[in-house]
């Protein structure tokens, strides 16, 4: 039995050993809070928004990257859809957020104009501007995982914060508000 053949039999053990060490480290980081598999960290955070131009709904004007970047106040871009149940869940909180003076721009993801109209009529319209992304292509470019997802865009067009979950009060108070205060 040659040595290299003997080493071959040890290979599975080596693989499992390395894997096990990796898992141990992940577990340790999870305990210290520096690793959270449940979080969707969008790679866009810290970078400019990708190029896009989206039409509006019902003949009204949509928006594009240039317009978004030209704002002087931070804008919360919210991807939603009329067919999405959690979106309806976050709708009252979005309304409250809009009334408190935050600019919210909506992008309807893979949706039909009439359905969007019905949805906004039922759950309220917190959006200062509304665009529609029927093909979902812009959402893909933004790295959207599912709806609802929200991005905070600083003046100049840089993504400063992102959440892939409904904007419930805990998320707004614990995460969004501190970022907004920092930007102000």
């Amino acid at each position: 039995m040659s040595l290299s053949r003997r080493m071959l039999f040890g290979l599975p053990l080596l693989v499992v050993g390395v894997g096990g060490a990796g898992f141990y480290e992940l577990l340790r980081r999870m305990q210290t809070g520096s690793y959270n598999p449940q979080a969707f960290n969008n790679p866009l955070v810290g970078h400019d928004v990708p190029d896009f131009t989206l039409p509006g709904v019902d003949g009204r004007e949509g928006f594009d990257k240039k317009l978004l970047a030209a704002q002087t106040r931070p804008v919360l871009v919210n991807f939603f859809a009329s067919w999405c149940v959690p979106c309806a869940g976050e709708a009252p909180y979005l309304d409250r957020l809009a009334k408190s003076g935050v600019d919210i721009w909506g992008i309807a993801y893979q949706d039909k104009p009439e359905a969007i109209g019905l949805y906004l009529a039922k759950y309220g319209n917190p959006y200062a501007r509304l665009a529609t992304d029927p093909s979902g292509r812009t959402a893909i470019n933004w790295g959207v995982y599912g709806v609802p997802e929200s991005f905070l865009i600083a003046p100049g067009g840089k993504v400063v914060w992102h959440v892939a979950a409904p904007l419930v009060p805990e998320v707004i108070d614990d995460q969004l508000r501190p970022v907004l205060r920092r930007l102000a």
């Binding site: 003997r6 039999f9 053990l13 499992v16 050993g17 096990g20 141990y24 577990l27 305990q31």
Partner: peptide, 28 residues
């Protein structure tokens, strides 16, 4: 909970690692 995770990892290491260690020595 994380302590469950660690316990599981140790158990897996013993079961899988132990059997593969045996394999490395005895398979030839």
């Amino acid at each position: 909970s994380p302590d469950q995770g660690l316990f599981i990892l140790v158990l897996l290491a013993l079961t899988i690692g132990g059997s593969l260690l045996l394999f490395a020595f005895r398979a030839p």
